[in-house]
Design a protein around this nucleic acid. Structure first.
Lengths: 123, 123
DNA sequence: CAGCATCCTTCCGGATACTG
DNA sequence: CAGTATCCGGAAGGATGCTG
Protein backbone atom coordinates (compact mmCIF):
# COMPACT_ATOMS: atom_id res chain seq x y z
CA UNK A 1 0.00 0.00 0.00
CA UNK A 2 2.29 2.76 -1.20
CA UNK A 3 -0.19 5.55 -0.82
CA UNK A 4 -0.85 4.72 2.79
CA UNK A 5 2.80 4.79 3.67
CA UNK A 6 3.12 8.31 2.45
CA UNK A 7 0.51 9.29 4.97
CA UNK A 8 2.02 7.22 7.72
CA UNK A 9 5.39 8.77 7.53
CA UNK A 10 3.98 12.24 7.70
CA UNK A 11 2.12 11.47 10.92
CA UNK A 12 4.09 10.37 13.98
CA UNK A 13 1.01 9.01 15.67
CA UNK A 14 0.66 6.48 12.89
CA UNK A 15 3.96 5.02 13.98
CA UNK A 16 2.50 4.38 17.40
CA UNK A 17 -0.70 2.89 16.08
CA UNK A 18 1.22 0.71 13.68
CA UNK A 19 2.90 -0.74 16.70
CA UNK A 20 0.17 -1.06 19.31
CA UNK A 21 -2.70 -1.11 16.85
CA UNK A 22 -2.01 -4.69 15.90
CA UNK A 23 -3.77 -7.36 17.83
CA UNK A 24 -1.05 -8.41 20.20
CA UNK A 25 1.50 -5.71 20.97
CA UNK A 26 -0.63 -3.92 23.48
CA UNK A 27 -1.55 -7.13 25.24
CA UNK A 28 2.12 -8.03 25.54
CA UNK A 29 3.01 -4.62 26.92
CA UNK A 30 0.18 -4.76 29.42
CA UNK A 31 1.22 -8.21 30.53
CA UNK A 32 4.80 -7.04 31.04
CA UNK A 33 3.56 -4.35 33.38
CA UNK A 34 3.36 -7.06 35.99
CA UNK A 35 7.09 -7.49 35.72
CA UNK A 36 9.60 -9.34 33.54
CA UNK A 37 8.35 -12.49 31.92
CA UNK A 38 9.69 -15.35 29.86
CA UNK A 39 8.65 -16.39 26.40
CA UNK A 40 6.49 -19.37 27.13
CA UNK A 41 5.08 -17.76 30.21
CA UNK A 42 3.85 -14.89 28.06
CA UNK A 43 2.51 -17.36 25.60
CA UNK A 44 0.48 -19.12 28.25
CA UNK A 45 -0.98 -15.99 29.73
CA UNK A 46 -1.83 -14.24 26.46
CA UNK A 47 -4.64 -16.42 25.42
CA UNK A 48 -4.78 -17.38 21.78
CA UNK A 49 -1.48 -15.97 20.59
CA UNK A 50 0.52 -18.23 18.33
CA UNK A 51 4.19 -18.85 18.84
CA UNK A 52 4.95 -17.08 15.63
CA UNK A 53 3.03 -13.94 16.45
CA UNK A 54 4.46 -13.71 19.93
CA UNK A 55 7.92 -13.98 18.45
CA UNK A 56 7.24 -11.38 15.79
CA UNK A 57 5.55 -9.04 18.24
CA UNK A 58 8.34 -9.20 20.79
CA UNK A 59 10.91 -8.56 18.11
CA UNK A 60 9.07 -5.47 16.95
CA UNK A 61 8.74 -4.18 20.47
CA UNK A 62 12.40 -4.79 21.12
CA UNK A 63 13.39 -3.08 17.90
CA UNK A 64 11.42 -0.02 18.88
CA UNK A 65 13.03 0.08 22.30
CA UNK A 66 9.85 -0.70 24.19
CA UNK A 67 10.99 -3.98 25.72
CA UNK A 68 14.34 -5.53 26.53
CA UNK A 69 15.34 -9.09 25.81
CA UNK A 70 17.91 -10.67 28.09
CA UNK A 71 19.23 -14.17 27.67
CA UNK A 72 20.04 -15.86 30.95
CA UNK A 73 23.13 -18.10 30.66
CA UNK A 74 21.43 -21.23 31.84
CA UNK A 75 20.69 -24.69 30.57
CA UNK A 76 18.07 -24.90 29.33
CA UNK A 77 18.31 -21.31 28.13
CA UNK A 78 15.90 -18.76 29.51
CA UNK A 79 14.98 -15.46 27.93
CA UNK A 80 13.37 -12.72 29.91
CA UNK A 81 11.43 -9.85 28.46
CA UNK A 82 10.85 -6.63 30.36
CA UNK A 83 9.43 -3.17 29.79
CA UNK A 84 11.79 -0.30 29.16
CA UNK A 85 10.99 3.09 30.68
CA UNK A 86 9.84 4.16 27.24
CA UNK A 87 7.56 1.16 27.00
CA UNK A 88 6.22 1.91 30.44
CA UNK A 89 5.48 5.51 29.51
CA UNK A 90 3.74 4.43 26.32
CA UNK A 91 1.37 2.17 28.17
CA UNK A 92 0.40 4.97 30.44
CA UNK A 93 -0.65 7.14 27.51
CA UNK A 94 -3.13 4.48 26.52
CA UNK A 95 -4.93 4.74 29.82
CA UNK A 96 -7.30 7.55 28.72
CA UNK A 97 -8.31 5.44 25.76
CA UNK A 98 -8.94 2.46 27.98
CA UNK A 99 -11.13 4.58 30.21
CA UNK A 100 -13.00 5.92 27.20
CA UNK A 101 -13.56 2.38 26.00
CA UNK A 102 -15.00 1.30 29.33
CA UNK A 103 -17.24 4.30 29.65
CA UNK A 104 -18.52 4.23 26.10
CA UNK A 105 -18.61 0.57 25.26
CA UNK A 106 -22.31 0.30 25.88
CA UNK A 107 -23.06 3.38 23.82
CA UNK A 108 -21.00 1.97 20.96
CA UNK A 109 -22.74 -1.37 21.20
CA UNK A 110 -26.13 0.28 21.12
CA UNK A 111 -25.15 2.44 18.19
CA UNK A 112 -24.08 -0.64 16.29
CA UNK A 113 -27.27 -2.47 17.09
CA UNK A 114 -29.39 0.47 15.99
CA UNK A 115 -27.39 0.83 12.80
CA UNK A 116 -27.70 -2.85 11.96
CA UNK A 117 -31.40 -2.86 12.76
CA UNK A 118 -32.02 0.04 10.41
CA UNK A 119 -30.04 -1.72 7.69
CA UNK A 120 -31.96 -4.96 8.14
CA UNK A 121 -35.23 -3.08 8.03
CA UNK A 122 -34.35 -1.51 4.70
CA UNK A 123 -33.55 -4.84 3.13
CA UNK B 1 -8.57 -15.88 13.50
CA UNK B 2 -10.89 -17.35 16.08
CA UNK B 3 -8.46 -17.28 18.95
CA UNK B 4 -7.78 -13.62 18.55
CA UNK B 5 -11.43 -12.74 18.70
CA UNK B 6 -11.78 -14.40 22.04
CA UNK B 7 -9.15 -12.04 23.35
CA UNK B 8 -10.68 -9.03 21.69
CA UNK B 9 -14.03 -9.46 23.22
CA UNK B 10 -12.58 -9.77 26.67
CA UNK B 11 -10.75 -6.48 26.36
CA UNK B 12 -12.77 -3.32 25.68
CA UNK B 13 -9.72 -1.40 24.59
CA UNK B 14 -9.32 -3.79 21.71
CA UNK B 15 -12.64 -2.55 20.40
CA UNK B 16 -11.21 0.94 20.23
CA UNK B 17 -8.01 -0.13 18.59
CA UNK B 18 -9.91 -2.21 16.09
CA UNK B 19 -11.63 0.96 15.06
CA UNK B 20 -8.91 3.62 15.12
CA UNK B 21 -6.02 1.22 14.74
CA UNK B 22 -6.64 0.84 11.04
CA UNK B 23 -4.90 3.16 8.69
CA UNK B 24 -7.65 5.63 7.99
CA UNK B 25 -10.20 5.98 10.75
CA UNK B 26 -8.11 8.21 12.91
CA UNK B 27 -7.18 10.44 9.99
CA UNK B 28 -10.84 10.83 9.14
CA UNK B 29 -11.76 11.69 12.70
CA UNK B 30 -8.94 14.19 12.95
CA UNK B 31 -9.97 15.79 9.70
CA UNK B 32 -13.55 16.11 10.91
CA UNK B 33 -12.35 18.02 13.92
CA UNK B 34 -12.14 21.02 11.61
CA UNK B 35 -15.88 20.81 11.14
CA UNK B 36 -18.36 18.89 8.98
CA UNK B 37 -17.08 17.77 5.63
CA UNK B 38 -18.39 16.15 2.47
CA UNK B 39 -17.34 12.89 0.94
CA UNK B 40 -15.17 14.06 -1.90
CA UNK B 41 -13.78 16.88 0.18
CA UNK B 42 -12.55 14.34 2.70
CA UNK B 43 -11.19 12.28 -0.11
CA UNK B 44 -9.19 15.17 -1.45
CA UNK B 45 -7.75 16.19 1.89
CA UNK B 46 -6.87 12.71 3.15
CA UNK B 47 -4.01 12.02 0.87
CA UNK B 48 -3.85 8.56 -0.61
CA UNK B 49 -7.17 7.16 0.58
CA UNK B 50 -9.14 5.24 -2.01
CA UNK B 51 -12.80 5.84 -2.59
CA UNK B 52 -13.55 2.38 -1.33
CA UNK B 53 -11.67 2.72 1.94
CA UNK B 54 -13.13 6.13 2.67
CA UNK B 55 -16.57 4.68 2.14
CA UNK B 56 -15.87 1.66 4.32
CA UNK B 57 -14.21 3.73 7.01
CA UNK B 58 -17.03 6.26 7.22
CA UNK B 59 -19.57 3.49 7.43
CA UNK B 60 -17.75 1.90 10.34
CA UNK B 61 -17.44 5.19 12.14
CA UNK B 62 -21.10 5.91 11.59
CA UNK B 63 -22.08 2.47 12.82
CA UNK B 64 -20.13 3.01 16.01
CA UNK B 65 -21.77 6.36 16.59
CA UNK B 66 -18.60 8.37 16.13
CA UNK B 67 -19.73 10.35 13.11
CA UNK B 68 -23.07 11.37 11.67
CA UNK B 69 -24.07 11.17 8.04
CA UNK B 70 -26.65 13.66 6.82
CA UNK B 71 -27.96 13.75 3.28
CA UNK B 72 -28.80 17.24 2.08
CA UNK B 73 -31.86 17.25 -0.19
CA UNK B 74 -30.16 18.90 -3.12
CA UNK B 75 -29.37 18.16 -6.71
CA UNK B 76 -26.71 17.00 -7.09
CA UNK B 77 -26.97 15.26 -3.74
CA UNK B 78 -24.62 16.27 -0.97
CA UNK B 79 -23.71 14.22 2.06
CA UNK B 80 -22.11 15.78 5.07
CA UNK B 81 -20.18 13.93 7.71
CA UNK B 82 -19.61 15.34 11.17
CA UNK B 83 -18.21 14.27 14.52
CA UNK B 84 -20.59 13.21 17.24
CA UNK B 85 -19.80 14.22 20.83
CA UNK B 86 -18.61 10.66 21.39
CA UNK B 87 -16.31 10.86 18.39
CA UNK B 88 -15.01 14.18 19.65
CA UNK B 89 -14.28 12.75 23.07
CA UNK B 90 -12.52 9.76 21.56
CA UNK B 91 -10.14 11.94 19.60
CA UNK B 92 -9.21 13.78 22.73
CA UNK B 93 -8.17 10.58 24.45
CA UNK B 94 -5.66 10.01 21.69
CA UNK B 95 -3.89 13.25 22.45
CA UNK B 96 -1.53 11.78 25.10
CA UNK B 97 -0.46 9.15 22.60
CA UNK B 98 0.16 11.78 19.97
CA UNK B 99 2.30 13.70 22.41
CA UNK B 100 4.20 10.56 23.33
CA UNK B 101 4.80 9.89 19.65
CA UNK B 102 6.21 13.35 19.07
CA UNK B 103 8.43 13.24 22.11
CA UNK B 104 9.73 9.75 21.54
CA UNK B 105 9.85 9.45 17.79
CA UNK B 106 13.56 10.15 17.66
CA UNK B 107 14.30 7.66 20.39
CA UNK B 108 12.26 5.03 18.58
CA UNK B 109 14.02 5.77 15.32
CA UNK B 110 17.40 5.47 16.97
CA UNK B 111 16.44 2.25 18.66
CA UNK B 112 15.36 0.81 15.35
CA UNK B 113 18.58 1.90 13.66
CA UNK B 114 20.69 0.39 16.43
CA UNK B 115 18.71 -2.82 16.30
CA UNK B 116 19.04 -3.10 12.54
CA UNK B 117 22.74 -2.30 12.69
CA UNK B 118 23.36 -5.02 15.22
CA UNK B 119 21.42 -7.46 13.06
CA UNK B 120 23.36 -6.54 9.95
CA UNK B 121 26.60 -6.89 11.84
CA UNK B 122 25.76 -10.43 12.89
CA UNK B 123 25.01 -11.47 9.34
C1' DC C 1 13.15 -23.58 26.45
C1' DA C 2 12.96 -20.30 22.91
C1' DG C 3 12.66 -19.64 18.85
C1' DC C 4 13.27 -19.58 13.03
C1' DA C 5 11.84 -21.48 8.29
C1' DT C 6 8.41 -23.02 5.33
C1' DC C 7 3.90 -23.73 3.46
C1' DC C 8 -0.56 -22.45 2.71
C1' DT C 9 -4.87 -20.10 3.53
C1' DT C 10 -7.34 -16.09 4.35
C1' DC C 11 -8.58 -11.53 3.82
C1' DC C 12 -7.51 -6.66 3.30
C1' DG C 13 -7.54 -3.19 0.18
C1' DG C 14 -6.52 -1.05 -4.72
C1' DA C 15 -8.34 -0.69 -9.46
C1' DT C 16 -12.07 -0.55 -12.29
C1' DA C 17 -16.73 -0.15 -13.79
C1' DC C 18 -21.34 0.96 -12.91
C1' DT C 19 -25.72 3.49 -10.34
C1' DG C 20 -29.19 6.97 -7.95
C1' DC D 1 -21.82 13.97 -6.24
C1' DA D 2 -21.62 9.99 -3.53
C1' DG D 3 -21.37 6.04 -3.49
C1' DT D 4 -21.87 0.21 -4.51
C1' DA D 5 -20.23 -4.18 -6.89
C1' DT D 6 -16.79 -7.05 -8.65
C1' DC D 7 -12.35 -8.69 -9.42
C1' DC D 8 -7.81 -9.64 -8.06
C1' DG D 9 -2.88 -9.28 -6.13
C1' DG D 10 -0.18 -9.16 -2.08
C1' DA D 11 0.51 -9.32 2.66
C1' DA D 12 -0.73 -11.13 7.33
C1' DG D 13 -0.89 -14.90 10.01
C1' DG D 14 -1.89 -20.06 11.56
C1' DA D 15 0.05 -24.84 11.34
C1' DT D 16 3.79 -27.61 11.19
C1' DG D 17 8.49 -29.17 11.54
C1' DC D 18 13.18 -28.35 12.85
C1' DT D 19 17.36 -26.10 15.66
C1' DG D 20 20.77 -24.30 19.49
Amino acid sequence: MPARRAVNYACPIRDVLDRIGDAWSLLVLIELRNGPCRFNALRRVIDGISQRMLSVTLRHLERDGLVTRTVLPLAPPQVEYALTPMGQSLIETVEPMRLWAEINQNAVRESRAAFDAKLAQMA
